[in-house]
Write a protein that binds this DNA or RNA. Structure first.
Length: 118
DNA sequence: ACAGTGACAACAT
DNA sequence: TATGTTGCCACTG
């Protein structure tokens, strides 16, 4: 596992309850604006990890269109929707979230430096 | 070393 | 809006 994954998890852990962000925005925060797919890949890898990563709120990451990206895989998409609704995020019947309301502002460079410099 | 694989995103129809 | 296409990148066998 590369350090990139760890950086992704560190940022995702900072997303407050009731807010969401996108794969692309996380990639930007990490200084790699085109690594959106890799971010999704990193979150996908969480299911193969131990309880040490159980606190990563992966459900708070959706795509840039404000839509849940998980495709099929035994309804895990609706599962993500349920987790978000429990946190107070409104997810419509088409698995869409209003980013104008729930988008997380993200981290400032000082906080980013704190995370990456660990 | 290298081709294949995604929970992406931008752009074109 | 809704699809389809193309470029991307970290990670994996």
């Amino acid at each position: 596992m590369g350090n990139f994954y760890e950086q992704v998890y560190a940022v995702v852990r900072r997303i407050p309850q009731g807010k969401v962000t996108s794969y692309g925005r996380i990639a930007q925060m990490l200084g790699q604006p085109r690594a959106a797919r890799a971010v999704g890949y990193a979150l996908n890898a969480l299911k193969d990890k131990d309880e040490k990563y159980a606190d990563v709120p992966w459900q708070r990451v959706i795509n840039n269109q404000g839509r849940i990206s998980i495709v099929n895989r035994e309804n895990s998409a609706s599962h993500q929707a349920e987790l978000l609704r429990k946190e107070g995020v409104v997810v419509d019947e088409n698995l869409r979230v209003n980013l104008d309301v729930y988008l997380w502002e993200g981290l400032h460079w000082v906080e980013i430096d704190d995370i990456l410099g660990s």
